[in-house]
Write a protein that binds this DNA or RNA. Structure first.
Lengths: 143, 143
DNA sequence: CTAAGATAGTTAACGCGTTAACTATCTCTC
DNA sequence: GAGAGATAGTTAACGCGTTAACTATCTTAG
């Protein structure tokens, strides 16, 4: 009773995910930014200044994971931690001017990869892919 | 011109992949083993003693990434690095007795998650999922 | 046979993920 | 108003991924 490494959803999933994130990382590299940092930029751009917990929630990582990302981004002068006056436990994360310019380029990278990923697929196929991936997600989430 | 985080293949892919690997990790935890260590076990079980480069290739990680995994597995008494007599640059990685027993349980975990992932999907849908994921992989690999 | 190049493995430096444990601060209840 | 509990952020310890640079060893060409 052998375990077949080749014929498992897990393998296809891993392969696709790996190529995808590698493609984004490679395109982001020349801009001196990582995928996670780009995501922070995106959410701040989209929803304005917000809390670390909020950001971590949207990025679907644990708060401690965000600490390092923000430290590096602060060091690069992209964002700023600003203490909330009404709740001194919170930090409000703000974009700095240099980040605004960068965001346009970063968004373009993401858009390119996103477009490339579904090249040659019909609308119906894309919808189907989404449906099946969502299904896998559900199946596996609730154990 | 906003970047839509919700409606991208990347997001669906990430979500599915995350749940999947989390599900495996959770099931493996009680056995005191990680996903990567389980993979090493699997490939050694399947193909017998082999080189670190070979292993890294099959796991699709870089050789330096494997070093730490093997160090920890050696520390746990699961595997052994054995110097190849015919080519003294290579290490031949061997399973130790305690690993043999563990493997049965680990394989069962993987099988459970793999089965759960496609629950409620027809054979045609699974084939379609594979086809689409492979397509995404190809699309994005060759830039 | 020797010098040059390829290959196997390691280390170092970095980024990022986790959980557990800690510090502040806020909130809620008595 | 004081003590108990919830919440925001951090740190520490761990696992794992990368690239670049280094050490051995083997191979190959001259």
């Amino acid at each position: 009773m052998k375990y077949d490494f080749e014929e498992s959803v897990g393998v296809w999933l891993t392969l696709a995910h790996q190529s995808y994130s590698r493609a984004i990382a490679e395109r982001l590299l020349p801009h001196g930014i990582t995928f996670r940092q780009a995501q922070v930029l995106g959410f701040l751009e989209l929803d304005g200044p917000q809390t670390q917990s909020e950001l971590a929630g949207k990025m679907m990582i644990e708060p401690p994971s965000l600490v390092g990302v923000l430290n590096r981004m602060e060091r690069s002068g992209l964002v700023e931690r600003q203490c909330c006056p009404d709740d001194r436990r919170c930090n409000s994360i703000h974009l700095l001017p240099s980040a605004e310019a960068l965001w346009q380029q970063v968004a373009e990278c993401a858009r390119q990869v996103r477009t490339a990923a579904v090249r040659g697929m019909s609308g119906a196929e894309i919808a189907q892919l989404k449906r099946l991936l969502t299904k896998v997600n559900e199946n596996v989430s609730d154990f």
